[in-house]
């Protein structure tokens, strides 16, 4: 990749707010083509909100999002739709259209945005569902399958058009460990074979360390970025205490809590108690 190419996704001084309540401010980072990028943070830190800003479902209070150097935030509908065609999005609960079968759900983007014949669409749908392990469930409705299966079907739909960028909102939440592992492998494979850029919102530490090239940590305490970089490096060298606690799953050893009377150590949740 030539050095003077703009990064695939750029976020510049992004502020996110709900009315007067500021969720996060001053977010600035880049995501390179073919990178697997994780968005991490505690509860209420605005991870899903950040994702929604990246895909254009919410307008920032300040700052902008750029795709290949082109301003996405302030673009007109035409230009925006052009950029949107390059995404695939997997929502937290699946967000499958409940009146359509799985096959119809996955076929939807293909039917709307390509002129492929029905035969080809059918084959493509079969492949995508097979990739997520749902072959045979084509004619089931979302209400008839489990939550985990809905998530996998929604991933198949996100992949339908072979997008350049895939966005995942908590993909492993609710998946059993084996499925979660398979999902990680699928993500790595998509990047390696197709060069897809992947942006994942997740808390799943195993996934973060397995697949993420770089990650950003949204710190609830300071309401801004707490860290940006390779997860392993962040775990050992970050100066942000909350980030290190997050990546080490809150293990004691970083910070011994003491029973104030006796001085005896005890293991608690992540915050330090003060009296």
């Amino acid at each position: 990749m030539p050095e003077n190419d703009p990064p695939q996704i750029s976020v510049r001084h992004l502020d996110m707010a709900y009315g007067d309540f500021v969720v996060m401010r001053g977010l600035t980072f880049d995501i390179a083509r073919g990178e697997i990028f994780a968005i991490m943070g505690g509860s209420g830190s605005g991870k899903s909100t950040l994702l929604r800003h990246l895909i254009g479902l919410q307008e920032p209070a300040a700052g902008e999002v750029l795709y290949n150097g082109a301003d996405f935030t302030h673009a007109d509908t035409q230009a925006r739709n052009q950029i949107l065609r390059k995404f695939g999005v997997m929502f937290q609960g699946g967000a499958l259209w409940s009146s359509l079968t799985l096959a119809e759900n996955v076929a939807f983007p293909l039917e709307e945005f390509t002129d492929l014949p029905a035969e080809t669409i059918h084959d493509t749908v079969e492949l995508k569902l097979a990739l997520v392990g749902l072959r045979g469930f084509e004619d089931f409705y979302p209400a008839e399958i489990s939550g985990g299966m809905c998530k996998r079907a929604s991933l198949a739909r996100a992949m339908a058009l072979d997008p350049e960028i895939l966005f995942f909102d908590e993909p492993s939440a609710g998946l059993d460990p084996v499925s979660a592992r398979r999902l990680d492998e699928l993500i790595l494979q998509l990047r390696d074979s197709l060069g897809t850029t992947v942006v994942v919102v997740t808390h799943e530490l195993a996934s973060i360390f397995a697949i993420a090239d770089r990650a950003i940590y949204l710190d609830v305490a300071t309401r801004t970025m707490g860290g940006l970089g390779d997860p392993s490096t962040l775990r050992s060298q970050s100066t942000n205490e909350n980030l290190r606690l997050f990546l080490n799953r809150g293990m004691a050893g970083l910070h011994l809590h003491q029973d104030p009377a006796t001085g005896a150590p005890f293991i608690t949740a992540t915050h330090r108690r003060s009296l």
Binding site: G56, L57, L84, F91, Q92, A95, W97, S98
Partner: peptide, 17 residues
């Protein structure tokens, strides 16, 4: 309303529809 709650409308918007 139910489509909105289950993010189905958001899914349509991300497809540019």
């Amino acid at each position: 309303g139910t489509m909105k709650v289950s993010e189905e409308i958001a899914a349509l918007r991300t497809l540019g529809l």
